[in-house]
Design a protein around this nucleic acid. Structure first.
Length: 462
RNA sequence: UCCUCAGUAGCUCAGUUGGUUAGAGCGGCGGACUGUUAAUCCGUAGGUCGUAGGUUCGACCCCUACCUGGGGAGCCA
């Protein structure tokens, strides 16, 4: 007999048919005559109830069926006599694949704190909450590829190891094969990289954007979707040292096209989750965050506010609020300012545009006013900046002078500059923090709980 | 990195102004129960009180440092 996944079984049950299911025991209840086993194989948040007449099975086998143990069960699918489930399996035979010592297995029937589960990240996917989160995470990853593929975008693989930190986005993880106990130095005291693997300093990427632009200036529309690394000592529920980023880059898009795409994209992902992850979202809505579904539907049903940085500053000043960080034109918005705009003033997602050039990256398209750049940040409730993007500076001279102004390593960026020399084109792009999107869609408050194995300062276990 | 709160049984927590033998619920184990739903009922084992110093006749409790975790902030996605 062929094994059937529990999701499939529950979706189209054939009463009185013989079935074979395999999975892990969530709970066992019962008395000396009958045992009820809740079995879960991860295909869905729902369990199948296995009913076993104790007379039919070896006493020791039944004793070894404990929370966490793994079983193969064959039997007849019948309508349940009890409340709480429609169907159940009347077991004919049970094979115990793996015991789970009840005394030491850390997961119990009762709920656990997220902090405790994080310490047992190797087992937490077996809980309802993490099963739901990781299934949703998968669904959204798939939806990202589907969205872009359907729009004619190409998935471009940008390098994980790079030889420059041109973007200047945060601290780097260095990549080397040098003996750390015996690092060669030049006469001036600096590290001698000549005999290192790449013959020069290398690091894990902080963003695939610059390489993504190279792709867009040949294939028109591309996206990257991969891990990025920041060695910042950030200890917050919104930061990881290793996180996944989605970065589309589009030729012939101006910043308005860019915003249109960003809003449509984010809404597509939310809609995809609502349509394809209903059981998991219902569970999270009841257990983690009672306002989750309402919030997802609200974001879907409303247009994002679009306004310039300059207008936003006016609103913040006119609000008369006392800010911990006083606000004025030219200063970057702090968390309290973003929160005010999104959660109090507009009460919906906000896209801010045209930031002062001095608080944004060198590659952003400069406006004619000489003061601002065509940046756009999408701000979400509870998360802050979920997307950051811009129209890119396509003018060679303007880009080069900005690089010089900021003392960036011009020679490391020769390849980037050449695209502006040979057939340059207006283009735009943005980056979406994948885990932050998952936070929003699942209602899970801590980013460490929306990735299977979080990497944070002082934590690289598993 | 800064501010702040916390660390006591496998888990979640209580523990009086510093005073004999550190408690509960859940989980585990043993038993009862003819269909359970986080089953129920009876019984039972389980502790280097985060680590290292210090104060004291005496420290889970007071002091110092460090470690780990939560919340907030910064950096950012």
């Amino acid at each position: 007999m062929k094994r059937i996944k529990i999701k499939e079984l529950l979706a189209s049950p054939e009463i009185e048919s013989d079935v074979l299911v395999k999975g892990w025991v969530r709970t066992k209840r019962g008395n000396k005559n009958i045992a009820f086993i809740a079995l879960n194989d991860g295909s869905t948040i729902n369990n199948i109830q296995v009913v076993a007449d104790t007379a039919k099975f070896d006493e020791n086998l039944l004793k070894d069926i404990t929370t966490g143990s793994c079983l193969s069960v064959s039997g007849k699918l019948i309508e349940s006599q009890g409340q709480g489930q429609n169907i159940e399996i009347h077991a004919e035979s049970i094979e115990l694949y793996g015991k789970s010592d009840a005394e030491t297995y850390p997961l119990q029937k009762k709920g656990h704190s997220m902090e405790f589960l994080r310490e047992i990240a190797h087992l937490r996917p077996r809980t309802n909450t993490f099963g739901a989160v990781f299934r949703i995470r998968h669904a959204i990853a798939f939806a990202i590829h589907k969205y872009f593929n359907d729009k004619g975008f190409f998935y471009l693989h940008t390098p994980i190891i790079t030889g420059s930190n041109a973007e200047g986005a945060g601290e780097l993880f260095h990549v080397t094969t040098m003996d750390l106990a015996n690092i060669p130095h030049n006469k001036d005291g600096s590290v001698d990289f000549n005999n290192d693997f790449f013959g020069k300093p290398a690091n894990l990427t902080v963003s695939g954007q610059l390489e993504g632009e190279l792709g867009a200036l040949a294939l028109s529309d591309i996206y990257t979707f991969g891990p990025t690394f920041r060695a910042e000592n950030s200890n917050t529920p919104r930061h990881l040292a290793e996180f996944w980023m989605v970065e589309p880059e589009m030729a012939f898009y101006d910043n308005n096209d860019n915003m249109d795409l960003a809003e449509d994209f984010v809404k597509y992902l939310i809609r995809y989750a609502l349509e394809n992850c209903k059981d998991d979202l219902d569970f999270l809505n009841s257990i983690i965050d009672k306002g989750l579904l309402e919030r997802l539907n609200f974001v879907l049903g409303n247009e994002f506010i679009r306004m310039t940085y300059t207008d936003a500053i006016k609103i913040l000043i006119d609000s008369g609020k006392k800010w911990e960080y006083p606000i004025s034109w030219g200063k970057d918005l702090q968390a309290e300012h973003e929160r005010y705009l999104v959660e109090e003033h507009f009460k919906k997602p906000v896209i801010l545009t045209d930031y002062p050039k001095d608080i944004k990256a060198f590659y952003m398209k400069q406006n004619d006013d000489g003061k601002t750049v065509r940046a756009m940040d999408v701000l979400f409730p509870g998360i802050g900046e979920i997307i950051g993007g811009s129209q890119r500076e396509e003018n060679y001279d303007a880009l080069l002078s900005r690089i010089k102004e900021l003392n960036l390593p011009e020679k490391d960026l020769w390849w980037y500059l050449e695209t502006r020399k040979f057939g340059t084109a207006p283009h735009s792009g943005f980056g979406l923090g994948f885990e932050r999107m998952i936070i929003f869609i699942t209602g899970i408050p801590n980013i460490r709980d929306v990735i299977p194995f979080p990497r944070t300062p002082k934590n690289a276990e598993f």
